[in-house]
Design a binder for these strands. Structure first.
Length: 270
DNA sequence: AGACCTTTGAAGCTG
DNA sequence: CAGCTTCAAAGGTCT
């Protein structure tokens, strides 16, 4: 049943014209770090950027500080960030601003900066961003150190180019194919990503670079290793097995080899 | 409740 | 340093 749903979704998408490079094998595209790419027509990516998007005018550094965004360094790259992301991104109804959504008002902020930097990278230890704000006043004095440690909000990794692309395009793909399961959606998005032109991909690489930069400034001491091992894996062996086709895939089937694409996937489309 | 699936890219880890 | 592993997002599915 589900398999058929996915199949029909791919059939539907077969007729979706790729941006460019249709029918060509995906070519590895090294990250592009041009500072002056055209920045038109990029809809909402990450709420971090949405905050600076139309219809609001491009915020000045003063505007940012008024929103209590801590910017310890005034780097030229950040100004590029503003010009890059302002006034060109559309709005998607399901998105919320990182700076206004209650889940972002965690009050934890950057260590050493009690003014609280509400940033979407900060989430409660539950993993998912919750609707209710993280209320540190709920902590009791009797809580053990370990408990307090466990309840410390997690600073998430900044999104890479593909993640930003997924965030933007997911709703569009879902609307087109009525699929909702992310595993299938992500397969489609992965193929579309490869179908993007170099210029189109460059926009996302640039946004991702800016996001990393901002993330570095917001959380100077943060390292990706901070989140290592926080997700419990059932076991490395099993995880490996799942990656090599030993377990059920997103289509509810048991693929013989993970490297073998699903037979109903037309390689010349998407 | 939380891992899994699935994708790419960044970054950490390991030998 | 090359290659492997983990984690970012997402939501349905499964344990």
């Amino acid at each position: 049943m589900y398999k058929e749903t996915v199949y029909s979704a791919f059939n539907l998408l077969m007729h979706y014209p790729p941006h460019s490079g249709a029918g060509q094998p995906p070519q590895p595209q090294p990250p592009l770090h041009k500072a002056s790419q055209p920045h038109h027509g990029v809809p909402q990516l990450s709420p971090l950027y949405e905050h600076f998007s139309s219809p609001h005018p491009t915020p000045t550094p003063t505007d940012i500080s008024q929103k209590q965004v801590h910017r310890p360094l005034q780097t030229p790259d950040l100004s590029g960030f503003y010009s890059l992301t302002s006034g060109s991104m559309g709005q998607l109804p399901h998105t919320v601003s990182w700076f206004t959504h209650p889940s972002l008002m965690l009050g934890s902020g950057v260590p050493g900066h009690p003014a609280a930097i509400p940033h979407p990278a900060i989430v409660p230890p539950s993993g998912k961003q919750e609707l209710q704000p993280y209320d540190r006043t709920l902590k009791t004095q009797t809580e053990s150190k370990a408990e307090k440690e466990a309840k410390k909000p997690t600073i998430k990794k900044p999104l890479n180019a593909f993640m930003l692309y997924m965030k933007e395009m997911r709703a569009k793909v879902i609307a087109e194919c009525t699929l909702k399961e992310s595993a299938a959606i992500n397969q489609i998005l992965g193929r579309r990503w490869h179908a993007l032109s170099r210029e189109e991909q460059a926009k996302y690489y640039e946004l991702a670079r800016k996001e990393r930069q901002l993330h570095m400034q917001l959380y100077p001491g943060w390292s990706a290793r901070d989140n290592y091992g926080k997700k419990k894996r059932r076991s490395r062996e099993k995880h490996q097995e799942s990656n090599t086709g030993g377990k059920r895939n997103a289509f509810g089937t048991y693929p013989e080899k993970a490297a073998t694409p699903a037979p109903f996937l037309p390689m010349t489309v998407l």
